[in-house]
Amino acid sequence: EQLARLKREFNENRYLTERRRQQLSSELGLNEAQIKIWFQNERA
């Protein structure tokens, strides 16, 4: 579920704002660094 949600977010926007990253962190139970790194890896 977390992965599917991250992929949906990535398809909508390849870059997250700090606020959006905080929201996802709270909703998915991941820390902000994990989300940031995931997005960086997807863009690579």
Rank of each mutant, 00 (worst) to 15 (best):
K36R: 12
R20W: 05
I35Y: 00
E18M: 07
L3N: 08
Q40V: 06
N11Q: 14
G29C: 05
A44M: 14
E12H: 07
L6D: 02
Q2L: 13
K7F: 06
R5E: 08
N13T: 04
L16N: 04
L24R: 01
I37G: 07
E27A: 06
A33R: 08
N41P: 01
E42D: 02
F39E: 05
E18L: 07
W38F: 12
E32V: 09
A4H: 08
Q2R: 08
K7A: 09
W38T: 00
Q40Y: 06
E27V: 06
Q23H: 10
N13F: 04
Q34F: 15
R5L: 05
R8I: 11
E18G: 09
K36L: 15
R43N: 13
L16K: 01
G29N: 08
R19H: 14
E18T: 14
R8S: 11
E27P: 01
R14Q: 14
Q40H: 08
F39D: 04
Q34V: 14
N11C: 15
Q34N: 06
G29Q: 07
S26D: 12
E27W: 04
R8W: 09
N11Y: 10
N13P: 03
L24V: 02
L6Q: 02
A33F: 11
R14S: 13
G29W: 01
N11G: 11
Q40C: 09
N11M: 13
E27F: 04
L3F: 04
I35A: 00
Q22E: 09
E18A: 14
S25E: 05
R14E: 11
F10E: 03
Q40G: 05
R14L: 00
E18R: 15
Q22H: 10
R20C: 10
A44Y: 08
Q23N: 09
A4W: 00
E32F: 03
E32G: 05
E32H: 02
N11P: 02
N31Q: 10
Q22T: 10
L24T: 00
T17W: 03
L30P: 00
E1T: 06
Q23M: 11
R19W: 08
L28R: 00
Q34D: 14
R5N: 05
E42G: 00
A33H: 12
G29P: 00
E12G: 03
K36E: 15
E32I: 09
R8H: 12
N13I: 04
Q34L: 14
L16V: 05
E9A: 13
T17G: 09
E18V: 13
R43W: 14
W38K: 02
R8Y: 09
N11F: 10
Q2V: 14
R20K: 12
L30Y: 03
G29K: 03
F10C: 10
N31V: 06
Q40E: 15
R19S: 14
N13H: 11
K36W: 11
F10Q: 02
Y15N: 11
L30W: 11
L16Q: 04
Q34E: 13
R5A: 11
F39S: 00
S25M: 10
I37V: 08
F39L: 03
N31S: 15
S25I: 09
E27T: 03
L3A: 05
L30T: 00
R14W: 10
I37R: 11
A44F: 08
S25T: 04
N13G: 06
L24Y: 01
N41Q: 11
N11E: 14
E1L: 08
Q2I: 15
L24H: 01
A33E: 15
G29V: 01
S26T: 14
W38C: 05
A33Q: 13
S26L: 15
R8K: 14
W38Q: 03
R14T: 04
S26H: 13
K36Q: 15
A44E: 13
K7T: 08
W38I: 06
R20P: 04
R5Y: 05
L30C: 10
N13S: 07
E1P: 04
W38N: 02
A44S: 09
Q22S: 10
R43C: 12
I37M: 10
A44T: 08
R20M: 13
R43I: 14
R19K: 14
S25W: 03
E12T: 07
Q40K: 08
E27R: 01
N31M: 07
K7E: 10
E18Y: 05
R43F: 13
N13Y: 06
R43Y: 11
T17K: 04
N13Q: 02
L6I: 04
L16E: 09
E12K: 14
Y15V: 11
R14D: 09
K36D: 15
Y15G: 06
R8V: 11
R21Q: 14
F39W: 15
K7L: 13
R21D: 03
L6E: 02
F39G: 00
R19F: 11
